[in-house]
């Protein structure tokens, strides 16, 4: 097959690709930070002794895990304007990603919290430390060690999931490739750029996850 890869297309639309790359990164970074907070709250609610709260949190997590992200994105993007809440597509995307990722992160956080032996809590109690302080000073610092590697894994999933926001017209990397393809009628060049963009991001995250995993692993744990 004699096909020549046309660098000119990439050069001509390089601004588009920079914007797409930046949007993918910024949406993912904002979403993961908010999702982490949301996920920790969900995890703590699920462990709560009040039956109603733990049931509600568990139900929410199962509902999110059992439905496609695209349906959740549509629910937010088309639903909110219907009840006269008008926010930009970018923030609708962030909301949907936070609602979705929060559920997955809460499972990671919960597994981390549950891995802390009960003796730690009992020891804290016998020292007269109250419940809130036990969480903040005893459980969370130890749990965080176990949470960080899978959390980076979740971050890579979130970056890949952010491509779904192409469906609501946000100019992230996948949509940018699609737009350039529609303008130039050349599919190979833009999609190769997008492909490499994702692989670079995911590879960097995978390497950093491995480094952190080694750094945080303690002997005996």
């Amino acid at each position: 097959m004699n096909y020549f890869f046309q660098w000119r297309i990439i050069e001509k639309y390089s601004d588009y690709f920079y914007r797409g790359f930046f949007n993918t990164l910024s949406i993912s970074a904002i979403s993961i930070s908010l999702a982490l907070i949301f996920g920790i709250i969900l995890a703590i609610l699920k462990r709560s002794e009040i039956k109603g709260l733990s049931w509600l949190s568990g139900g929410y997590i199962n509902l999110i895990r059992s439905t496609p992200l695209l349906v959740q994105v549509y629910f937010v993007y088309f639903g909110l304007p219907y009840i006269n809440i008008n926010i930009s597509g970018y923030w609708c995307g962030v909301i949907a990603l936070v609602l979705n990722s929060g559920a997955y992160i809460s499972e990671i956080v919960r597994a981390g919290l549950e891995s802390i032996p009960n003796g730690q809590v009992e020891a804290a109690q016998s020292l007269g430390i109250d419940k809130r302080q036990t969480y903040i000073y005893i459980i969370l610092p130890q749990a965080l060690r176990k949470i960080i590697p899978p959390l980076i894994g979740q971050f890579t999933y979130l970056i890949k999931d952010s491509s779904i926001l192409a469906a609501i017209g946000i100019y992230e990397l996948t949509n940018t490739a699609n737009v350039v393809h529609a303008r130039t009628f050349k599919p190979i060049e833009p999609f190769v750029v997008a492909l490499l963009g994702y692989i670079i991001i995911v590879t960097i995250l995978m390497i950093s996850a491995n480094i952190l995993k080694k750094k945080f692993s303690l002997s005996g744990y």
Partner: peptide, 11 residues
């Protein structure tokens, strides 16, 4: 595993 499913589908 480094590529979003949607991008693969478009490709």
């Amino acid at each position: 595993r480094g590529v979003p499913f949607l991008l693969l589908l478009f490709i």
